[in-house]
């Protein structure tokens, strides 16, 4: 691990109003999540669908307004910032989206999509500078610079995701929030894109928040990982530690459920772990208690807070571990 804290997220709460069976509900998508990101570090966020990991990422890039909490970029507040300094910060904190088919405007040429952040902010001084920057960026993500004049439908899924990455690194940002950037890709293409992201991290000294449901992918790219369950971070530690000795019962289930590509290590039938409760019927105590093999009476009434457990900065939210 290296460098100073570049992004500091504290106690983020995000809720949505939803309607179900005629009644209005408040759905707590993110329930007091905190994390920090050091310069050049990749932090993985893992969890099942609906755990709030995507909402947390969208909150950091300003697509969702949190109910409360702070987000600081290099010490400067991102939520209450004035529009000019915020615009500058938006250039520094960028997002890569999951679905490469949906994240590019079908009616815009690839070059225009790649240059969009620069165009919005008036970054390019001349047309020549702009096209040179587009060509250089496309080359950096392993695409032919001639793609600048093509349209998304002419590209394959993997190529489109490379364009999505190119769009996020021009002009060069400090942080990339990557929301499931390889989930929609085939495994052989997935490896190519993961390698590209690791290269860019090293070359451009990028910090990354890497959101994924796939612990295998997270294990490849990130040094630390935060495990989310129903809007809260339940375990946070170095990636190897989490993968090798998961502590929280939910993390253990998650690690155990990865389908290992080894027929001699079959897990089917060995695991019965229930299903996550609906966000509409959040349990009172620990949200994992109804599925948890270790749950005690206390777990059903009192929400466990993150506390440090063991060495190297591991934190965990569980009463019984």
């Amino acid at each position: 691990m290296s460098g100073d804290v570049i992004l500091d997220v504290r106690d983020i709460m995000v809720s949505f109003s939803a309607r179900r069976a005629g009644r209005k509900y408040r759905v707590q998508a993110v329930d007091g999540a905190s994390l920090s990101l050091a310069e050049g570090e990749v932090l993985g966020i893992v969890g099942e669908s609906g755990c709030g990991k995507t909402t947390l990422g969208r909150t950091i890039v300003g697509l969702v307004r949190p109910d409360s909490g702070t987000i600081r970029f290099n010490g400067a507040d991102m939520i209450g910032a004035g529009s000019s300094s915020l615009r500058e910060m938006r250039l520094k904190v960028r997002m890569v989206f999951q679905d490469p088919n949906a994240s590019l405007n079908p009616r815009r040429a690839i070059g225009d999509s790649v240059a969009e952040a620069g165009d919005i902010s008036g970054f390019f001084k001349t047309r020549a500078e702009r096209s040179a920057a587009i060509a250089a960026t496309l080359t950096a993500v392993g695409l032919n610079p001639a793609f600048a004049d093509r349209y998304p439908y002419e590209l394959s899924g993997g190529q489109r995701q490379r364009v999505g990455i190119a769009r996020a690194i021009l002009p060069t940002p400090s942080i990339i929030i990557a929301d499931e950037p390889v989930s929609a890709l085939d495994v052989s293409v997935q490896a190519q894109v993961l390698n590209l992201m690791m290269d860019l991290r090293d070359q451009l000294r990028l910090s990354m928040l890497f959101i994924s449901h796939d612990l295998g992918v997270i294990g490849q790219i990130s040094s630390r990982v935060a495990v989310m369950y129903m809007g809260r971070i339940v375990e946070h530690a170095r990636t190897r530690t989490v993968l090798d000795q998961p502590l929280h019962p939910y993390t253990r289930a998650l690690v155990a459920a990865i389908p290992k590509p080894d027929p001699s290590k079959r897990i089917l039938g060995a695991i019965e772990m229930g299903e996550p409760p609906s966000l509409f019927t959040r349990p009172r105590g620990c949200a994992y208690a109804p599925r948890c093999p270790l749950a005690s009476d206390r777990c059903f009434v009192e929400v466990p807070n993150l506390r440090s457990a063991g060495t190297d900065g591991r934190t965990i939210a569980c009463h019984n571990v």
């Binding site: 890039v61 300003g62 250039l91 960028r94 997002m95 405007n105 815009r108 969009e116 919005i120």
Partner: peptide
């Protein structure tokens, strides 16, 4: 609600930009 419009918003695009470009 399209992702590319969200991508544009996340990069600080204003309403005029969204309407004219997307």
């Amino acid at each position: 609600a399209e992702t590319y419009v969200e991508a544009s918003r996340s990069m600080g695009a204003g309403t005029v930009w969204l309407i004219s470009r997307h």
